[in-house]
Design a protein around this nucleic acid. Structure first.
Lengths: 205, 205
DNA sequence: ATTTGGTTTAACCAATTGGTCAAAAGTAGA
DNA sequence: TCTACTTTTGACCAATTGGTTAAACCAAAT
């Protein structure tokens, strides 16, 4: 019971921390703000998490690992490569739309401290999923379904590039769309519809 | 003469500021560090630029506008759309390789303060270049060279996504490549070679 | 009711940091 | 050389901020 309450407060702090860190980044985030958002005293944040860095790392790893896990599973369902690509974009785009400010936060923090990424990968079971997908691509190349000059890893990177960049570049795209008398939201909704076909056109034999 | 020396010191400060801001971001950057890198007293930085924010904005706009201008011109030389795509990737990839940490810095700061982007666009003459390229795409669609279902702006965003993401995602790709017994540098060198063909395959009628 | 343990808080601290200032140093013209 | 000026610096300041602490609080066991 006491443990549950503690757990509850820990969760409230974590949620507040995710909010603050995602919005301001590690350097811009303030422990006082996290405490305020959690509705508690600042000392209590330190009581539960000792330091800003410890809190950050815990928060970051949880959020990142959750994201990577969802990401990995979208590569790991049944179907042909073409079907998987369609499914991936559908799921990934939905995920990104709901967490629009996560990608830039994640990439910026990982860039600031590349060590973070190792810990994320350790628990994300990414390797087997990636390797499985690569193998499948090679199979379908052999079957004549996919162009033989397609390099699996480059294809994977291309897919991820296409999926994530529109969110990372949001402020720029917002401005561009405004100058073209359109708007970001409607553009994105139309843009995401063509992603899978764009990739499939490119690689089909 | 005095003016020249002043200009010289101003430039030294700016160069140091670019370095510091690109590496640490606005929130992580330190005025003292900028002074040290420029080899001068910290008060002198304030003497020339008044405040951290003013210095940052000046530095940011100059660097960003230079980048966007180069970017725009790569769309604005002669040739068919396919040729332009090839040229763009060549030039853009070279540019990015030389400024590997610029994209994540730029996008992160613009995300932190979306107002910055407006000022960048004002002086980058981007609109006419973009509109020209869009028009050309529509022409070649009419001529039967490009698939009719290609949406010009989406194509443009796709191209930029493919070009920039490998640099933004550097730390992640570095880790992935390591796990696949390869390395980031060699991957990138091979990856960039297939970008243009990937896009052209996708859109050719 | 009292004790015991963990939990929560207000007040506080030390370090960092953007920014200021008055004095010193340098420069050019009279 | 002297004067008027700009540039440069060391010392300093006030605000912010991550982190600590001692006391208050509170629930459960004795």
């Amino acid at each position: 019971m006491v443990k549950e309450i503690s757990k509850n407060i820990e969760d409230k702090i974590m949620a507040a921390a995710v909010d603050e860190f995602e919005e301001k980044g590690f350097n811009g985030a303030r422990m006082q703000q996290i405490a305020d958002k959690a509705g508690i005293n600042k000392a209590l944040v330190h009581y539960y998490f000792r330091s800003k860095e410890k809190l950050f790392e815990k928060v970051f790893l949880i959020v990142a690992q959750r994201a990577f896990k969802k990401f990995a599973t979208t590569l790991n369902n049944d179907g042909t490569v073409f079907e998987k690509i369609g499914n991936f974009f559908n799921m990934h785009q939905d995920l990104l739309w709901k967490n629009r400010n996560f990608p830039i936060f994640f990439l910026n923090e990982v860039n600031r401290n590349p060590n973070l990424i190792k810990k994320v990968f350790e628990k994300a079971e990414l390797d087997s999923n990636i390797l499985g997908f690569i193998e499948q691509i090679n199979d379908e190349k052999a079957q004549g379904k996919i162009r033989t000059d397609v390099e699996p890893i480059s294809l994977l990177v291309n897919i991820i590039s296409l999926s994530i960049f529109p969110y990372i570049g949001q402020p720029v795209l917002t401005e561009v769309m405004q100058r073209l008398n359109s708007d970001y939201g409607t553009f994105l909704q139309q843009h995401r519809q063509q992603l899978a076909q764009f990739v499939i056109n490119s690689i089909k034999a």
